[in-house]
Structures are given as structure tokens and as C-alpha cells.
């Protein structure tokens, strides 16, 4: 290991596909609402935004009211959520652009749906709007993250659990945009590399993983499922070791494909571990629920972790955990 560096000798910039990022950290979709932070921040939150890019909560073609309460519960070293993709639908979402158009960060739009046509409808509407909108009236949308952890309208199974169904979603969206296209993979599969290969072959520029693990918690009095939706998705530190393994699997199988790694990142060292497993960028999810200043702290820690190891850039750490 090389001698340690001063903090200002570390250059955190990374390139995710064709998107330049000031550093490797993004927010995991659905865990960080810029409007909510900005309206209460004592200062200009749009200038002080802590993540290198903003991934908003998943948007779908039509409005969704989401799942019945309770929607969240804590579990050992983690939590289970079953929000149900509550969102206003793409038309209303676009109508709200004025409120956060000033955000000085690239935006990667998380898109959900229950069929390839649903995803295509969202991307088509956004691309049409962006093509016609006056300069400065929209956030700086630079890409899409296809959230394929939604049930397929025809089979009821998670789209992301089926390589062909996932590829069909990518295939429906790819012709509609030249922007960065990521596919967010579900970990609820026996071989995540099969889905990764399928979506890349269909035109996805990169993949993000992992989404949450399907899970269940019981009401300790009644022994009935606690969540209104019966099951939900497990996230937090409990899933980090599995997420690291899955990121490494994908990075080894597809060494040239950019990966956004995530799953229980609570510290800068956690983020660095995802980079060592092959991630180009790292998303922070549940840690946003532990402290509002968590993103800035994790970024400071990541810089210090790189410096302490004499690693001048995230790229110098990328893949250190992989087989040569």
C-alpha cells in the first residue's frame, strides 16, 4: 500500500457513462427528496446539494397512491419498506419542474412501470418535454434508471427477476433517448449476472444494484404480517455483504459496464468497499434516514479513506476486491 495522501490530493471525480460526476456518491431513489430539504434549509440547498447527482423517487406513467400503512418497520441492522411507488405520475411530475430546476447537479430519473409500454410512456413524455422546454426551466436531466423491481402486469412476477422481461423494458426505452440508461437490478434472483447481461445486450449503458430484498416482518403481538402490504423490501447494513458480493459478480462478468453499487452504505468505508468491488458510483439509501447530514459525512469519510490508503482517485480503488 502506498503512503497516505493529504486530503486535497484526492480527486473524487468519476465518469458514469457520459455523465461527469464531482464525486462517486448518489442518493438511492426514494430516500432523499430535494424539495423537502431545500424548503427547510438555512441557505441555498440547490447550490449545497451533497450528492454528485440526484436520483428522485421513482415516477410512473400514471399517478399511484401507494400501499396501505404501515409502510415501514425497523429490523435488525435494517428496515423493511413497502411504499408502493407512490408518485403523482409523469405529467404532474413534469409540471413541478419549476420548483427544483435550479438544482446544479445532473439528474438521473428513476422510472417504474408494470410493462415495457409503461416505462416507454414515461421516457417519451420526458423527452418530448425536454425537447420543447425553454432553457433553464427544467432540471438537468442526464439519464434514466429503470426500476425493474416492479411486478409485471401480465405475470405478476417482478420484471427484474426475468432476464427477457427486463431486456424488453430496456428495448422499449432505448430507441426513445440518447441519455444515459441504467437498469436497477433486483437482488431477488439466483444469478444477477444473467439479468445484467440481458439488459446490457438490450442497450442499457450500465446497471445499478442492489434494490431491496423481498422480506417480511411480523407484529410481535398478533404474529400477523406487520406491513400493510404484507411484504416489503429490506435495506440497510444487514444487506451490505450480499450487495457487495452481487456487485462483484456483475463487475467480474461485465468488466466494461459501469455499475452503481448500493446496499447498506452507512460510512465512507462502506462506499469504498463498493468501489473495490467494481462500482463506479455508489448510492446512499437508508443512511439518509439516520441523519440529515449523512451524505456530507459519508463523502468526507470516503475522501479520508482514499487518502489514508494513498489512493488518488476512486478509479485507483475500483476493482481491488475482484479476481485478477
Amino acid at each position: 500500500m502506498s503512503a497516505s495522501l493529504a486530503l486535497d490530493q484526492v480527486d473524487l471525480r468519476v465518469r458514469l457513462g457520459d455523465v461527469e460526476l464531482a464525486h462517486p456518491l448518489l442518493d438511492a431513489s426514494g430516500t432523499f427528496d430535494v424539495l423537502e430539504y431545500a424548503r427547510r434549509f438555512e441557505g441555498d440547498y440547490y447550490a449545497a446539494f451533497p450528492y454528485a447527482a440526484y436520483v428522485p423517487k421513482t415516477v410512473t406513467a400514471e399517478a399511484r397512491t401507494g400501499n396501505p400503512a404501515p409502510r415501514v418497520t425497523e429490523t435488525p441492522a435494517g428496515m423493511i419498506n413497502a411504499i408502493g411507488l407512490e408518485n403523482p405520475g409523469i405529467a404532474a411530475w413534469i409540471a413541478g419542474f419549476g420548483a427544483w430546476a435550479r438544482l446544479e447537479r445532473p439528474v438521473i430519473v428513476s422510472v417504474g412501470g408494470n410493462s415495457p409500454e409503461h416505462y416507454a410512456a414515461v421516457v417519451r413524455a420526458l423527452e418530448a418535454h425536454l425537447a420543447a422546454a425553454p432553457a433553464g426551466s427544467c432540471p438537468d436531466i442526464r439519464g434514466y434508471e429503470l426500476n425493474v423491481s416492479c411486478p409485471n402486469v401480465s405475470s405478476g412476477l417482478q420484471i427484474g427477476a426475468d432476464p427477457a422481461a427486463s431486456a424488453a423494458v430496456v428495448g422499449a426505452v432505448r430507441p426513445l433517448t440518447r441519455r444515459l440508461l441504467l437498469t436497477k437490478l433486483t437482488p431477488n434472483v439466483s444469478d444477477v449476472t444473467a439479468v445484467a447481461r440481458a439488459v446490457v445486450a438490450a442497450g442499457s449503458d450500465g446497471v445499478s444494484l442492489v434494490n431491496t430484498f423481498k422480506a417480511m416482518a411480523l407484529d410481535r403481538e398478533t404474529l400477523r404480517p406487520f406491513l400493510g402490504n404484507r411484504t416489503g423490501g429490506l435495506c440497510g447494513p444487514a444487506i451490505k455483504p450480499i450487495a457487495l458480493r452481487m456487485v462483484a459478480d456483475v463487475a467480474e462478468a461485465l468488466p466494461d459496464v459501469p455499475v452503481v453499487g448500493m446496499g447498506g452504505v452507512m460510512t465512507g468505508l462502506d462506499a469504498l468497499e463498493f468501489i473495490a468491488c467494481g462500482a463506479t458510483a455508489v448510492a446512499v439509501g437508508a443512511a439518509n434516514f439516520t441523519a440529515f447530514e449523512a451524505p456530507r459525512r459519508i463523502l468526507d469519510e470516503l475522501r479520508a479513506e482514499l487518502a489514508a490508503r494513498g489512493l488518488r482517485t476512486p478509479a485507483a480503488a475500483r476493482g481491488l476486491a475482484l479476481r485478477a
Partner: peptide
């Protein structure tokens, strides 16, 4: 009161039904 995760308005974990919607 509601079961809450983020406390920041981000996660939509604590929504309740109201006359103004969720």
C-alpha cells in the same frame, strides 16, 4: 402519529389519508 423512517419527507413511509389526499 405514524410509523416513520426518514423524518424528512423523503420516503413516504408515514403517509395518512386526509381530505387533501395522502
Amino acid at each position: 402519529e405514524a410509523h416513520m423512517a426518514c423524518g424528512s419527507g423523503s420516503c413516504h413511509g408515514c403517509v395518512v389519508d386526509t381530505a387533501r389526499g395522502k
